[in-house]
Every structure is written in C-alpha cells, then in structure tokens.
Amino acid sequence: MTSTAGYNFAYLDENTKRMIRRALLKAVAIPGHQVPFGSREMPLPYGWGTGGIQVTASIIGPDDTLKVIDQGADDTTNAVSIRRFFARVAGVATTERTSEASIIQTRHRIPETPLREGQILVYQVPMPEPLFRLEPRVTETKRMHALADYGLMHVKLYEDIARHGHIAISYNYPVMVNGRYLMAPSPIPAFDNPKMDRMPALQLFGAGREKRIYAVPPYTPVRSLDFEDHPFVPIRADAACALCGSRESYLDEVVTDDRGGRIFVCSDTDYCRERQAARRRDAAE
C-alpha cells in the first residue's frame, strides 16, 4: 500500500498508533477529558498540526478519503502539505469536498456543510487546557477538572462583561462537554461552537506539543459557557460573501487594494465553491 519505501503505512510505526488509539478510546469514553499520550517527533514543527497529524495517522485506513483544511481553506500551505503528506505515506484518496471525506483534519474551523454519521473531524490543538491563562499550575488545573470546580472560568466571563459590556472571546470559546468537563474547542471561532453540539460525526482533538488527546463522541451535548442575562452569541461579520453571496457562512475579511478596499468572502472554500457552482448551474438553466 505504501507509496514511499522505508516508511510504515501512514508514517507512524504500529506500536505508536496502538498507543494513540488507546488514548483515543479513553478520550471517547470520557468526553472532554484530556488524556496524556506519548507525542512523537513529526516531520513538521510544533504548532503546524503535529497533534492532529498523529491522530489522523492512527485512525486512517487504506479506504479512507482525507480532507485537510486550514482556517476553512483547502489551498493554504498547511492544508496542502498535510494532505500531500498522507497521500504519500498512506496512499489514501484525498478530496476537497466535505461531503466526500471520511476523515477531515482541521485547523481553526468546522466546515459549513453539516457533517454526518461515520465522518471523523480531527482538530489540531495548540493549547488543550482551557484554564491555562487563569491558573498557571497544571497540578491545580487537573484538580479543578477532577472536582468540576469551574467557577474561575465564569470569573473570566464576568470580567469581560464588566470591562467590555459583553463576553469578548471570539475564538477558542470555552465549552462544557456532556455537562461535566470544561473543554477548549481549539481556536475555532465562537461562530462554530454551536456546530459541535450533538454533532453526528466523531470529533477528535490532538495537541502534539502539550501531549494531550481529547474527544467529543457523536451526539454529545456541547454547551458554550455564558450568563443567563448575557447569553452566548455566535459572532459573524455583518455582510454577504462577495463570491457566493452567503449570509450564513463564516467570513474572512480580505484587503483588496491600498485605498481601503476590502471584501468579505467565505472562509470555507469548499462551501463557497459549491455555492458558486450551483449559482452558475441555475443561471445556465
């Protein structure tokens, strides 16, 4: 199967994959709980998706179809390199279409197209600990997770409202998984948080530098933290996509010239392309 001689299927050796799969099983059994694992050196720097790559390498099989996105886009350096990496070391089929993929490795976005049962979403996580800016001691944060002692996170939200009038977290917005564990959803925009709630697909999170794996099984409740009188509001730029006209998708702001010109476009390139194609079909008919 392997297209590059000298490498095992999907780069990692079988013992490492088994070790990661054991961590994954434990993570799925305890939704939102961070499971330590022996993170390996990967042929790319920390922060580029070493955690996500290791998770993908352990779960991918010859029949899988892989899609990799970075900030929603299929054509950025990170996405292209990782996709090419797996095409080479695992010889799997790759795609840019969300609906055709069986495994989607993502950095900082959830695809706009709703995921279905049987698909797996693998997140690249830079910092798995949601409390790390509030409590610097890892021993103490572990204890807080063990005792479900999460008052401190609400103190942070309180401070935001007192200072800014609203909860000023626009990405990596903390969530409660299954009513038990506080979890960092990786730096996805708060706009994507509602998509995690009771998602039919399996969600796996890998943090390579911090050596942690966690997971959200299908149909698990994921609730964004908020106050009764300041409910969670997903933020979205108030505009339509300049290319496909969508008013529902998450938008990137793109500067077009040096005279203040700018446009908003979908950050999910696959979603945008599909919509543009549909538009052209409609126009042709």
């Binding site: 008052g151 401190l152 609400h154 103190v155 309180y158 401070e159 409202i161 007192a162 106050f227």
Partner: peptide, 21 residues
C-alpha cells in the same frame, strides 16, 4: 488580576450563580 467585583462574585459563581446582573 481580577476586578473587585469579580473577586466578590467568584464564590457566588463557584456555587452556581449564573446571572450577571
């Protein structure tokens, strides 16, 4: 590093108060 109000409110939030007002 937390405002006076946040300091007073921490214990309330720790026991489950979820109404900012």
């Amino acid at each position: 590093g937390v405002s006076a109000g946040g300091n007073v409110g921490e214990r309330l939030m720790a026991v489950g108060a979820r109404h900012y007002g």
